[in-house]
Simulated scan of single mutants.
Amino acid sequence: MASITNETLSRYLSDELDAVVATSNLSPVTAGARRINVLFDATIDGTDRALCITQLPNEGEAFRSIPDEVQWLNLAHRAGMNVAEVVGWSDDASILGGPFFITQQISGVTIPKRVVELCADTPGLGATVAYQIGESLARLHVRSIDEVPADVERPPGTAVDAALAWIDEGMSELLQRSPAFELVVRWLTHNQPSPVAVTPIHGDTRNGNIIVNETGLGAILDWETAHIGEPFEDLAWLAQRMWRARNDSLEIGGFANRSDLRRGYEAGGGEWSDERFHWWKVYRCVWWGLGLARQGRQHLDGTFRSVIMAASGRRVAELEWDALCLIDPANQAA
């Protein structure tokens, strides 16, 4: 964050907001591999605000451009979702050393284990958070796809067609066959749900991409992979065992039951289907397993040398096991 200083930040915000702005207390916080987050305080025309910079130091590694991500955040804000309001943004790397956006700062915890612990220690909190996530996602899913950035791909067929095509591609890239995934892919093919309209979806809502505090859901984070798809692709991702921080008795993030999510989703205007939820839960399990295999391959072939990528590849067997459990009629709540 060498280029992020109080001087450059105050100058940018003063020009952007047409106000007198002074910033202080720059504090880098843990973020993903591709971005930097910096918390700071700002006094804007005499009013104090706590804000956060999200910056892409290397735009070439980003899944989505800053202008597109800001457009998704603004869509979510208009929809009434629990998201941080955007204060400013720029794709001019000369200002702060990389493209960035600035949002309001929201207090709470994001590390999955801490989210689970906070919910366990606060009666009713987990159910509240799941309800609010469901309600927020429903508000996004009822919006028109005309509101998403113009360069976001529109699936040529159904969302299920696009999903199975992605699976076929991922299976073809495996360095060794996976009989477990082959069996589960046959299940997916033979149990396809009927087509429904596609909608804007977040794509990565899970324990780890949410802010939770003592009052409930602070915000849904990380809009890098937002796209057009089927609503239950979002909802089923929340239920993957990987995100439960070992608290497997609670299906949604390790902190709530599916019924809590469903109540919120229906209250927000969404239509629930256990059949669709289960199909997409199985799909997302295979999808993530193939994604981990791809990360492992990128380490091995030198595309992205990283111990994290190598470790990801070693976890594929966990997803094979989870997927097999999910297609076992006796294990569908796994």
Results as ranks from 00 to 15, higher is better:
residue 273 S to L: 02
residue 65 S to Y: 06
residue 299 H to T: 02
residue 333 A to N: 12
residue 331 N to K: 09
residue 9 L to A: 00
residue 148 V to C: 08
residue 255 F to H: 06
residue 169 E to T: 12
residue 70 V to I: 12
residue 12 Y to K: 03
residue 205 T to F: 08
residue 332 Q to I: 05
residue 83 V to N: 11
residue 157 G to N: 04
residue 66 I to V: 15
residue 299 H to M: 00
residue 187 W to T: 10
residue 193 P to W: 11
residue 322 D to T: 03
residue 133 I to E: 00
residue 122 T to M: 01
residue 118 L to N: 00
residue 260 D to E: 12
residue 183 L to R: 15
residue 299 H to P: 00
residue 42 A to L: 03
residue 141 H to G: 04
residue 180 A to E: 14
residue 153 E to R: 14
residue 71 Q to W: 13
residue 251 E to P: 08
residue 128 T to F: 04
residue 198 V to N: 13
residue 110 T to H: 06
residue 270 G to D: 01
residue 43 T to Q: 14
residue 58 N to D: 15
residue 54 T to C: 09
residue 219 A to L: 06
residue 283 Y to S: 12
residue 200 P to H: 13
residue 54 T to V: 10
residue 23 T to R: 09
residue 219 A to Y: 08
residue 242 M to R: 15
residue 249 S to C: 08
residue 254 G to S: 00
residue 22 A to D: 12
residue 334 A to V: 15
residue 41 D to G: 12
residue 112 P to Y: 05
residue 246 R to M: 10
residue 6 N to L: 03
residue 112 P to I: 02
residue 292 L to Q: 12
residue 123 P to D: 05
residue 254 G to T: 01
residue 156 P to I: 09
residue 255 F to I: 04
residue 131 Y to I: 05
residue 44 I to C: 06
residue 268 G to C: 03
residue 35 R to T: 15
residue 15 D to R: 14
residue 12 Y to V: 02
residue 89 W to Y: 13
residue 309 M to G: 10
residue 228 I to G: 03
residue 260 D to L: 10
residue 116 V to C: 00
residue 258 R to F: 07
residue 78 R to E: 03
residue 32 G to L: 07
residue 129 V to N: 06
residue 107 S to K: 10
residue 75 L to E: 03
residue 42 A to V: 06
residue 17 L to V: 08
residue 183 L to Y: 13
residue 303 T to C: 04
residue 125 L to T: 05
residue 141 H to D: 01
residue 196 V to K: 15
residue 326 L to I: 07
residue 269 G to Q: 01
residue 267 A to H: 13
residue 91 D to C: 10
residue 244 R to H: 01
residue 78 R to C: 00
residue 211 I to H: 08
residue 148 V to S: 07
residue 262 R to T: 07
residue 94 S to D: 12
residue 255 F to A: 01
residue 159 A to N: 05
residue 121 D to R: 13
residue 291 G to R: 08
residue 213 N to K: 01
residue 322 D to A: 07
residue 211 I to N: 05
residue 195 P to Y: 10
residue 325 C to Y: 11
residue 26 L to R: 11
residue 108 G to R: 02
residue 251 E to S: 13
residue 314 R to K: 13
residue 191 N to S: 13
residue 203 G to I: 11
residue 221 L to N: 02
residue 272 W to Q: 09
residue 106 I to D: 04
residue 206 R to P: 08
residue 187 W to Q: 10
